[in-house]
């Protein structure tokens, strides 16, 4: 009797534990189901490589290359900012900050990470964009450049905290061995610690990238919104997430436009999924290498 109850409870927990897998599979199924109908109208290659995104024109055109280029463009710009700043902050926290400093600085990074994206978007729109427009004498302030700046700031704490985790896995003995052969702290850091933590740091960079490319509200408000392939970093752009968020409200359910937006979401999902799996694989190998497998 009692044993039966125990078994029942265990099965219950097992079933519930699979909910996150169920949701992930659910998301994949929904995206495929709602995305695939668009390929009856447009061929996959015309969809991916077409350069005109005029979903509401007559006849409509569904080429999402400008949106993909925009997403990659602003993400690359964000990486230029968040990789040095994030990794640099992690190294500072790990190498230079004493306990008292860490007690203040780690929360600062976590708090920066918890600022809602809508607030970053608002800040970009009312403070940064007008400032850049005047300072750089641009025709408009809402550009790929402005977006990259904000996304870079947003992704910095992500990169910093994951990279700091990676650094903490490097065994003490590595450092001591390096000091013992006469290296100074800087040499130890650049020649021993950073290479040892290398794949952990690349995990941090990949997850930062994933965060930047999937960010929605900020790019929706700051990127400027024009669906053309940018020629300079000071052009307004329309990244994939912004197109979905801006147009889903107006696309009639079941229309080609509606399915096209789901297809964009599917591509976006596959990109971030690939990033996350890559990060997972690299970090597992990394912990094995350092003998910290769990």
């Amino acid at each position: 009797m009692n044993r039966r109850k125990e078994r029942f409870i265990k099965y219950l927990f097992t079933a519930v534990a699979f909910s996150s897998l169920a949701f992930l599979v659910g998301i994949i199924l929904v995206l495929f189901k709602e995305a695939l109908p668009i390929f009856k109208t447009v061929s996959p290659s015309a969809f991916l490589l077409g350069t005109s995104w005029y979903p509401t024109a007559e006849p409509p055109e569904f080429g999402i290359l400008p949106l993909i280029v925009a997403s990659l463009w602003v993400t690359a710009g964000a990486l230029v900012i968040c990789v040095p700043l994030g990794v640099g902050s992690a190294l500072y926290l790990h190498e230079l900050a004493g306990n008292k400093q860490r007690a203040v600085l780690k929360p600062v990074i976590e708090i920066l990470a918890s600022v809602p994206s809508i607030v970053y978007g608002f800040f970009g729109m009312v403070v940064l964009a007008p400032f850049l427009q005047t300072a750089l004498d641009l025709p408009i302030g809402l550009t790929a450049f402005t977006t990259s700046l904000i996304l870079g700031v947003m992704a910095t704490p992500t990169v910093a905290s994951i990279a700091e985790d990676a650094l903490s896995y490097v065994p003490r003995s590595f450092r001591e061995a390096s000091f013992a052969v006469g290296a100074d702290r800087w040499q130890t850091l650049t020649k021993v610690i950073i290479p040892a933590a290398g794949s952990g740091i690349s995990t941090a960079v990949i997850l930062g990238m994933s965060r930047a490319i999937g960010e929605t509200m900020t790019v929706l408000m700051v990127a400027g919104g024009s669906a053309i392939i940018p020629e300079s970093i000071f052009d307004p752009v329309r990244p994939m997430t912004a197109a979905i968020a801006a147009e889903m409200g107006e696309a009639p359910v079941g229309s080609d436009h509606y399915h096209a937006l789901f297809a964009i979401a599917l591509i976006l999902f596959l990109i971030t999924f690939a990033f996350n799996v890559a990060a997972e694989l690299i970090s597992r190998r990394y912990r094995l290498k350092l003998g910290q497998a769990r």
């Binding site: 994206s117 999937g214 889903m248 789901f262 999902f269 996350n276 997972e280």
Partner: peptide, 17 residues
């Protein structure tokens, strides 16, 4: 892996789901 990936899904995709 599914928990980690769920954590990395872009928020707008949750909206579509």
């Amino acid at each position: 892996i599914s928990i980690n990936n769920l954590a990395g899904v872009p928020s707008v995709v949750f909206g579509l789901f």
